[in-house]
Amino acid sequence: MQQPTKVPHYTKYHPRWFRPRVSVYWWLGQWQYLRFILRELSSVFVALTVIMTLLELRAVVQGPVAYARFQHQLAKPGVILISLISLFFVLFHTITWFNLTPRAMAVKVAGKRIPEWLVAAPNYLIWIVVSGAISLLILRG
């Protein structure tokens, strides 16, 4: 027989509901929630990448000396490490959001909803084409 743990006080004739508290670490226990938090966190690295790109563009505009100085900064171990982490998160951000597109858009053709992969595929296609075009521009330049 279970003994009373503490004397509970509750309103007579009304069930005393137990209201569990949500831990601040709710996202740590299961991979799917951790993945969600990582996806949210990835936005910080996306912003960082955008800032780095803008700084790089500014260095290009300022001339060869400024660009060489910027490249020198980029070659420092700490910056390389941050760049690698940023690359991981930017890829994670891009792929997870591309894969979620079919959820947000129910695209119909001739009254029928098209398969999910067909909604996600153009994102990848545009990504590859744009990346290829930019790479060509940089490598040729």
Partner: peptide, 9 residues
């Protein structure tokens, strides 16, 4: 048990 317990076990 709301009559006996302060929290679930």
């Amino acid at each position: 048990s709301p009559e006996r317990d302060a929290e679930p076990h």
